[in-house]
């Protein structure tokens, strides 16, 4: 079965990103397909490569990046939510005249239409939030 995943909260403050990650891992282990993971609201903060959690804690951002590399996951960060919260890829940084970008590997920035499309294309859409 094809799953779409929506993550509405950032890392660490709420458990939402952790639960979504464990769900995605379990779905992949069972042979299901993850059509897309869409990050919205503060969920866009899961995509910053500048997080440095303590060494004895999980690295939520890196964990998503690694899972994406391993399974060719499509991790999409909402552009409108990302711009509000200071998440940029190289081209967005350039377009907005910012001196840095901060998107972690495996994530891409795109529009809200990607969420709707995931709802249309996936057999199930599962929402994780606060």
């Amino acid at each position: 079965m094809k799953f779409g995943i929506l993550v509405n909260e950032g890392p660490y403050t709420h458990q939402a990103s952790d639960t979504a990650y464990q769900f995605v891992k379990a779905a992949l282990a069972k042979g299901h397909e993850i059509y897309r993971v869409f990050f919205y609201h503060d969920g866009v903060n899961n995509a910053t490569r500048l997080t440095v959690p303590p060494q004895d804690d999980r690295n939520i951002v890196k964990r998503w990046s690694e899972l994406a590399a391993q399974h060719k996951l499509d991790l999409v960060v909402c552009i409108a939510a990302a711009q509000r919260r200071g998440l940029m890829d190289k081209s967005e940084a350039k377009r907005n005249g910012k001196d840095a970008d901060n998107i972690a590997p495996g994530f891409r920035i795109s529009g809200l239409g990607q969420l709707i499309e995931a709802g249309i294309q996936a057999d199930r859409l599962v929402v994780f939030g606060a």
């Binding site: 079965m1 799953f3 769900f23 379990a26 299901h32 859409l125 599962v126």
Partner: peptide, 13 residues
């Protein structure tokens, strides 16, 4: 959790 999602037509969070 994954199985429950598969078994039901939709999920309301």
């Amino acid at each position: 959790f994954v199985d429950l999602v598969v078994e039901h037509n939709a999920v309301q969070s």
